[in-house]
């Protein structure tokens, strides 16, 4: 994350500055959503591929592993959001790169929840 922060930071395009408020808070929210989406996909696939992981995610028996997968992904999303917001709240960043990374993580997250893709990994 440190390396990623450095690579996405730098002198922002004047167009990136949103009024008097730095765009860092928005960038943190966008990237954290990508991270949370990827976590959802990874947890879904891991829980399906490895029974021991699936059992670990079974934190509320009536809903089964879905309870842990969704709770874990929401936890990762909120934690990432908090950490990135604290780090970037006063900064102006190049949003284009952050958007690309967030979209890529979102797409990977979608793919990792798609059953035929998970079947391929079995």
């Amino acid at each position: 994350m440190e390396r990623e922060t450095k690579s996405t930071a730098g002198t922002a395009n004047p167009d990136d500055v949103l009024g008097s408020l730095p765009n860092g808070l928005g960038a943190a929210a966008i990237l954290a959503t990508g991270i949370g989406s990827l976590a959802l996909g990874l947890f879904t696939t891991a829980g399906d591929l490895w029974p021991v992981v699936g059992t670990t995610f079974n934190i509320w028996r009536p809903s089964g592993p879905l309870s842990g997968v969704s709770t874990g992904a929401v936890g990762v999303w909120l934690l990432a959001w908090l950490l990135l917001a604290v780090r970037w709240r006063t900064r102006n960043l190049r949003l284009r790169r952050i958007n690309v990374v967030a979209y890529a993580m979102l797409a990977a997250g979608f793919l990792l929840t798609f059953p035929p893709f998970i079947w391929l990994l079995h």
Binding site: G19, G26, I30, A73
Partner: peptide
């Protein structure tokens, strides 16, 4: 599983919109 993308994404959309408000009009990437 896929349904869980929705509240995560829409919460971000609402928060960013509220945080930046009309200034979003001036920023294409956001």
């Amino acid at each position: 599983h896929v349904s869980w993308f929705t509240p995560i994404a829409m919460t971000m959309v609402a928060v960013v919109f509220i945080t930046y408000g009309p200034n979003i009009a001036r920023h294409r990437q956001m």
